[in-house]
Nucleic acid binder design. Structure first.
Lengths: 260, 260
DNA sequence: AAAGAAATGAGTGAATATGACGGACTTTGC
DNA sequence: GCAAAGTCCGTCATATTCACTCATTTCTTT
């Protein structure tokens, strides 16, 4: 146990247990593995915490994790087990592209959140307007976290507006990981909401590399607003069963297409 | 008693214990090691202080340190009970100062969080760098919520840095509700950490009215860094048993002193 | 000035917290 | 059903914190 200098500086046991209860209230449920990563302790410690909290009646212990006490009876299948679903594979592949010490910018949406979950314990600087990412990485001491300002958009758990754009003009990062509602057959990246587009454009301006994260369902896809031309992308991470014609179109525009 | 003991080198036990309580209210929790370093005494002394304060009910002793009495998530039984604790009274009084439709800026710290809890269902615009406030108001559809950008400061659950200051320059609000580590006898507002001071100053610049929230334990109080002169405040909300001399000093500087 | 009281810091064995490991158990996919 | 994967629950070694004692310093009282 070499890294125990953390102990004194880090959270107190009781404090961490409060954080567990808070996290469960936010999400409704939490897996042992996820909580361990989020709070930066071992799974054994999380199990002990969950047992203690269960005895106190502050949560309900279930196989694989715990549920919030008042959080209803939703199936636990979703938080439990491995669930190697598409977005997860893409996110894992994307995480491999990041070197320790780098700074990255995470777009809004669940794809970027999946990527954030892969970053626990890594020494990286994360910049984001994604409130779900904030919650996920809030307690990870290893990660330098920077939040862009902006108006809270509850339905998307994101920050938008001129404040967000202005914040982006003050920063520069190595890599942007961009989400999308769909990539059109001609390779143009689209989004479903107009309001996010200026923010995404500002993000592109603030990064050296632009990596688009898009599972197969986004190829080809639609959207009301154009975010950028394919030429502005450095790389696209997607899946083997993504539409080939669109992939070829992207490759032609000089974009490196990586399959997860 | 030697008069010079007051001037910095040595601190009276009672004074130090007040500082501990204040430090906990600011952070929510504190480790024995951290408190010992911060106050310049041995861990043994801190433990004795914590035990004494715990018996007085001024904090909750936990393994490794202590928690603020109202900090974190306590058992539900206590939450539902009648709570007329100091910060709550101050927060309620402060909430009465806000008109529907106004925009307000909330400082970091638990005092501002208490105020945020009073705002549920109100039609107000809330601007903040306080991550605890974000969590509290995140799901309240009625409230327009704006987050300032910045570096995440985990121990204080706040955002700091030039991004935060820059964000503040883009905004203007009706009222700022400011927290503090203590108000000196001459009325100057102090803070315990240097790094927050530029942000607090920028907040003052961004508001028409500046309201200081300070329970009785902050009167008089100390801090390493000066945030502002009393003349920069519009109003102070505190309690009837706050030090009268300090209150008089504030009134003389043209500050309206409101008792909760 | 001297004696007494209170506070402090250091040291020690006991108690608590943590992480790793292995065998028993549960869930999942076939 | 069965096998595989994942999860749990003991146990142990180690690091940290605690309660206690005692000597020293500091403050108060006589």
């Amino acid at each position: 146990m070499t890294d125990f200098a953390w102990y004194g500086l880090s959270v107190l046991p009781k404090q961490r247990q409060d954080q567990i209860v808070r996290a469960l209230r936010a999400d409704g449920a939490g897996g042992v593995k996820a909580l361990a990563a989020q709070l930066g302790v071992s799974e054994a410690t999380i199990r002990r915490d969950l047992e203690s909290l269960h005895e106190q009646g502050r949560l309900t212990r279930v196989y694989g994790g715990a549920l919030a006490v008042d959080g209803g009876d939703e199936p636990f299948a979703e938080v439990s087990a491995v669930r190697t679903d598409e977005k997860d594979r893409v996110a894992r592949k994307a995480a491999e592209l990041i070197e320790d010490g780098e700074s990255i910018l995470l777009d809004i949406g669940t794809t970027a959140l999946q990527l954030a979950k892969q970053l626990h314990g890594r020494s990286v600087t994360v910049v984001t307007s994604n409130l779900a990412v904030l919650e996920e990485l809030q307690n990870d001491e290893q990660i330098e976290l920077i939040i862009l300002g902006g108006f809270v958009r509850r339905s998307y758990r994101s920050l938008v507006g001129y404040l967000t754009e202005e914040s982006l003009r003050q920063l520069h990062v190595n890599t942007l990981f961009l989400g999308t509602s769909g990539v059109r057959p001609d390779g143009r990246v689209m989004d479903s909401t107009m309001i996010e587009v200026p923010v995404k454009r500002a993000m592109i301006q603030a990064a050296d590399r632009v990596v688009l994260l898009a599972d197969a369902s986004k190829f080809p896809g639609h959207g009301v607003a154009k975010v950028c031309e394919p030429g502005e992308l450095t790389m696209v991470v997607t899946e083997p069963d993504a539409d080939e014609a669109t992939r070829a179109q992207l490759a032609e525009a000089g974009v490196q297409v990586v399959l997860a």
